[in-house]
Computed example of a mutant assay.
Amino acid sequence: MKLLLVEDDPSMQATLERSLTRRGMQVHACSDGRQALERWRSHEPDVVLLDLTLPGLDGLQVLERARGGGLATPVLILTARGTVGDRVIGLNTGADDYLAKPFDLDELEARLHALHRRRAAGQRETPSHTVGNLRYDRDSGAIYHGAQVLELTPRELALLQALMVKPGHAVSKERLFELVFPGEADVQYEAVEVVVYRLRKKLAPTGATLMTLRGLGYLLKAQA
């Protein structure tokens, strides 16, 4: 199991990373919300273990932007916020499970394996998304043109991933801005247009067209 551990407490992070690695998991740890979101997009794990109180972006913001970008990785929220209200908010934002601190390691491991099995069953049904000759491999996070990985910048990749999971449907500029420039308050919305312009040139030979729908956003569809 490839696990993305997002926890900002150094002691808790080290303990979980050590314990879960000993139990056979491949653990990549992040302590910052923005860093975690970038890692999630570029190297999609099997399961995400997500704390809510994080610097950069908090856990709910990370989860909301990941789900908005089409990342369907199972998420277990692990937090000291154990009230019913917090649990409902987390689950409504897109979490799959919730475990309050303090917790038992055996129970945590069992829940992570349950989410992993659920993901494996889902991947047998929908392992990737295709538009024209493009294929988005959700397991690796890469987008292929035929057998070759499409060479994209991180921002181009984030934008194309968001469009690939909703082929034929418009995605608003505001949503794309949140996914491509997370937490960058000093960047203008027009920056999305620059990424779109560059991406559109790279997509020309792929059999997919990136369309601008005035007032609605952007849409990806296969060329006729």
Rank of each mutant, 00 (worst) to 15 (best):
V196M: 07
L150D: 02
L157F: 05
V195Y: 14
P167Q: 02
V192L: 11
R155V: 00
L160I: 07
R124F: 00
K173C: 12
T130H: 11
E193K: 07
R155H: 07
G168A: 06
G141V: 06
L176D: 01
H129L: 08
G183S: 08
F181D: 00
E184M: 15
Q161D: 08
K166S: 08
E156H: 07
G122T: 10
D137H: 12
L160E: 06
V195R: 14
Y144D: 01
P182M: 13
E125G: 08
E178P: 03
R198T: 00
A185I: 14
T130V: 09
P182D: 11
K166H: 05
V192E: 11
A121R: 12
H145M: 01
L150K: 06
E125C: 12
V149E: 15
A191F: 11
V165M: 04
V195F: 14
S140M: 02
K173F: 09
A158R: 10
E174K: 07
Q148I: 01
L199M: 11
R175Q: 13
K173Q: 14
A142W: 09
I143S: 06
R175N: 06
R118F: 01
V195N: 15
N133H: 15
S128Q: 04
A121S: 10
A142T: 01
D137T: 14
E125V: 09
V165A: 05
A120L: 10
R155E: 13
E193L: 07
P182K: 01
G183A: 09
V195A: 15
